[in-house]
């Protein structure tokens, strides 16, 4: 398969008020075209920073971030980001918010916006203001906005983390359903193991400070997956162990997932 997203020996250091905080000093990662990769890790481990580097919203301190072999820049339109919060522009209606995503695409924008709102089940709310929407609806608009950009790579930054449990599961199914018509590369950042297991082709586990890739798992089950699939169940136990969950006291020599050895 052709490589789509590549991070090569990427380091990122945040400098603020004279102190520098290294987020990671050597991350390498490749994502194939059309692949769905989930980056899994505890809060504050730098998962989102990886996503922001791919989006061009942050510049790497060292190393290279490229899509399709070409380095990313701030003015890149090869990615679209769906953030953890919907981040809808409150002064634009639902359809105008989706149209923001489509603004750099040629062709009939209004038709595209309508089709996407239909796909995420919000055709009736095209004229509504963002503040009138529930959290789940707002996040569906954000997803439609991301898809409207027709990106090579769709970047999802914990997009369902703030939703209630049931809405989150429905959104995951919606994402898979929508993806049938939009088969682009997806990089999903999440701390939800079940979400990663349900959606991704491959899970990249991040840990330690400064962060590094501690493990990678290919998920050996075709989609759509039953949430009770036994293969996935075993993989879940495995990953949970890595994060120090379900470990017997004598085995629990550390509470830091990053201290575990890489595969």
């Amino acid at each position: 398969m052709t490589q789509d997203v590549t991070l090569a020996q990427v380091a990122k250091v945040f400098r603020r008020n004279g102190t520098s905080t290294p987020v990671f000093d050597d991350i390498s990662l490749t994502v194939d075209r059309g692949e769905f990769v989930a980056i899994l890790g505890p809060s504050g481990c730098g998962k989102s920073t990886i996503l922001r580097l791919i989006a061009g919203l942050e510049q790497p301190t060292a190393g290279q971030v490229a899509i399709g072999g070409r380095e990313v820049s701030v003015t890149d339109d090869r990615c679209a980001v769906v953030f953890q919060e919907p981040r809808l522009l409150p002064w634009r209606t639902v359809s105008a918010n989706v149209a923001l995503g489509a603004r750099r695409r040629k062709g009939d924008q209004r038709h595209r916006v309508r089709a996407l709102l239909d796909e995420v089940g919000l055709a009736d709310t095209a004229k509504a203001w963002p503040h009138q929407l529930s959290g789940g609806m707002a996040q569906r608009v954000a997803l439609a906005r991301g898809l409207a950009a027709e990106p090579d790579v769709l970047l999802l930054d914990e997009p369902f983390a703030a939703l209630d449990a049931l809405t989150r599961l429905k959104m995951q199914d919606l994402l898979l359903q929508v993806r049938e018509h939009h088969p682009q590369t997806v990089v999903l950042v999440t701390h939800d193991i079940d979400e990663a297991l349900h959606l991704a082709d491959r899970i990249v586990i991040l840990g330690d400070t400064p962060a590094r890739v501690v493990a990678t798992h290919r998920i050996p089950a075709p989609r759509p997956r039953e949430r009770s699939n036994p293969t996935i169940g075993r993989l879940r136990d495995d990953i949970l162990h890595r994060f120090g969950v379900g470990v017997t006291p004598e085995r629990e020599d550390t509470d830091c997932p990053g201290a575990l050895a890489a595969d």
């Binding site: 003015t75 990615c79 679209a80 980001v81 919060e85 603004r103």
Partner: peptide
């Protein structure tokens, strides 16, 4: 975060100011 949305969807300079 809203400014970042604009940037993520390709708005710069005067377009960012206007939109």
């Amino acid at each position: 975060r809203l400014v970042e949305v604009g940037q993520a969807y390709g708005l710069r300079g005067p377009a960012l100011a206007w939109h």
